[in-house]
Amino acid sequence: MTHQAYRLSIIYFTLFALLLLTTGATLFFSKIGFSFEAIHNYYAGNEALFMNAKSTYGQLETLVPHLGAMGLFIMVMGHFILFASKKRRKGIVTIFILLFIAALGDIVSGLFIAKNIGLFIGVKLLSFIALIGFGYYLSLLVLHEAYLGFKKA
């Protein structure tokens, strides 16, 4: 019966995870924007629009908590699915690795965009989309497995 209580906590945890990803995507959209130009303006600045470039230390204030939080989030979410589903282990491990890479790309690319290295605008956009997409997929997978387990118990 203890497992039933664990599963309940996990179900709520995944609902929070979906909300976390949604607020993250909304923040990105409303604060930065999803176009190449908007991302460049946000990090490297634009004199015509009176936008200052983001300083390295200014970016570190966002970067540091995200490094800790994203690492922890992916690890916790990942270990739930590893325990819950034995069928799709290989595929899921690939998703973790991709998630870690995407999270790192999303966090670090701003530093390079601020130095006017245009290539990283694509890295930022691609890694953010991958992070949100795989994050949703993993969360829904955990939710599905936990719900099935809860119903069986």
Partner: peptide
Amino acid sequence: FHFILELLHSDIFFMMMTLLTLGAIFSR
């Protein structure tokens, strides 16, 4: 709107981690 979003974004993270850990300890 940014203020509310940023507040909730960080709140959700702390809530989910705290309540998950607390829920697991309490269940046990």
